[in-house]
Amino acid sequence: MGLAELFRTRGWPVPLPVRVHPGTTGPELLRQLDIAPEQVEVVFVNGKAVSPDLAVMSGGDRVALAPPGVPGPYRVLLGFRKM
């Protein structure tokens, strides 16, 4: 099941407002949202692509999740071609 399907199944709006404390890590966010780590390849924090293990966020940040298997051209456009 992809992330879009997960959001639909759970009835979550897009974007989904989530409260986080300063310094929340990618793994903490995924646990908070009950999303399996293998479902997320890249986390975008304020437009910057990082691996989920390196992501750090605070309240007010804009965060996006990308699943594994994003096609090559989109990887280039989104800025995570080499990840």
Score class of each variant (00 low, 15 high):
P15Q: 07
G59A: 07
L65N: 01
A4I: 12
V50E: 05
P27V: 05
G2M: 13
M83D: 07
R8C: 13
V40D: 04
V42K: 05
L78T: 01
R31K: 14
L30A: 06
S51D: 08
F44E: 08
P68A: 13
E38S: 14
L16P: 07
E41R: 07
G26A: 10
L33A: 04
V40Q: 08
A36E: 13
D61A: 08
L77C: 11
G2K: 14
P22T: 01
P68M: 10
A49S: 00
R81I: 04
V63R: 03
D53I: 12
P73C: 03
P73E: 12
V40F: 02
G47S: 03
P52I: 06
G2H: 14
A55G: 03
I35M: 12
P73S: 10
P52V: 07
D53N: 14
G23R: 11
L78V: 02
W12C: 08
L30G: 02
R19G: 12
P71L: 13
G79R: 06
P15D: 00
V18P: 08
V50P: 01
P37C: 10
P22Q: 12
A64G: 08
L65F: 10
L30R: 07
V14E: 13
R81F: 07
R75G: 10
G59P: 01
G69L: 10
R81W: 02
W12F: 15
L29G: 14
R10G: 11
Q39W: 08
P13W: 06
M57L: 15
G69C: 04
V45Y: 01
P71Q: 03
M1T: 12
V76G: 04
L65R: 00
